[in-house]
Design a protein around this nucleic acid. Sequence first.
DNA 1: TACGATAGACGCAACGTTGCGTCCAGACAA
DNA 2: TTGTCTGGACGCAACGTTGCGTCTATCGTA
Lengths: 202, 202
Amino acid sequence: MVSRMSVANSQPRRTRSGSRRDEAARLAVLHAADDLLAEHGFGALTVEAIARRAGVAKQTIYRWWPSKVEILLDTLIEDSGKRLPIPTDKPTAEGIRGYMRAFARFVTRDPAGKVLLALIAEAQHDPATAKLLHERHLGPRREQERDMLARAIDAGAISPGLGADAIDALVGAIVYRALTGSSVPYRLVDALCDDLLGARTG
Amino acid sequence: MVSRMSVANSQPRRTRSGSRRDEAARLAVLHAADDLLAEHGFGALTVEAIARRAGVAKQTIYRWWPSKVEILLDTLIEDSGKRLPIPTDKPTAEGIRGYMRAFARFVTRDPAGKVLLALIAEAQHDPATAKLLHERHLGPRREQERDMLARAIDAGAISPGLGADAIDALVGAIVYRALTGSSVPYRLVDALCDDLLGARTG
DNA sequence: TACGATAGACGCAACGTTGCGTCCAGACAA
DNA sequence: TTGTCTGGACGCAACGTTGCGTCTATCGTA
């Protein structure tokens, strides 16, 4: 969602048509979807609007993505991997609290966070979306988060009453606030971590 | 189960004559919406399908409800009021834990719980739905839940680190599990209560 | 008490609009 | 030649609206 370029206005003359997939068109579509969602909400996110905004033919979208949900999923995976990395270094209570803070920020302020909320929502309406979202994003990420917790438990940094399920409780509490339009201040995140992780975090 | 105030008791601005609103049709619509959602998901929930299922003309629906969201909201409010009452008696840790268990069951097993999840989802896509959902359901209910917690705190039955915000954390953790298709076993609810309410529940 | 007039509620059917997903023709690069 | 891109037309489904005819509960009048 960063660069505001579309294929159409990035270059006056179109030189990107050939036998290989047009990378500029791919990025333009991803960014257009991201921008439209952030600016006008999921309601305004139609394939036709994405095509218009990206300066790309509708058929180009359907050639590469089966549905607009998969477009959003692509942007989510790229963005969350980049902007919300899971700490892999020494597992401390501090580190986990930092990650949860970043997650809270991501889901309430980052446009890619809106994408996540929209996909969770869409998953309620459509089982196919639910399957994709779990397979490609929620599942793998939860796996890594549980690892993070498990390592911290092994190291004696935390001792959650819920075990590794504590991560769901933390994520869930934060996501729910975001879904209902509430803010998620750091002090709330910290209090959640204190209660659920069973650790002193200085 | 009624307590509707659509037209009948709003204002007798003119002398009433003619037929009154058909209560059977009203119930048929609410049940049809509920059934269709439970059976085929939100995706299959079209106004035309509701009309067909209810044995009612489409126009009859549009005469009384501005959108299908308001149909769902009506069923949610009636059903949650009936099947998920908020305890008003003596505020104990036990009572709160019982309520959270009932809530977990409601949101994972009761058809009306599916309605709640669908409306939370739809609220992500449409600001008007978000507003309605907050005004007519989430707001009032959260208010009562916070009261329940506050009274328990006053009575010394619990002492949550989050204060009255603990209710959001509990509800959020449970709703998130439901939204992501996970089960919410009682032992998980109990562990959440133990960690977040700061009370031994014997 | 009886009866006709009236105001709505309802069913049915058709309308124009929107977004979907598909398909095709033509242009162009490798 | 092959594969991608654009631009536009297409059929489909659901939307929300409208007009028309029927039915029925209530009111005014005799």
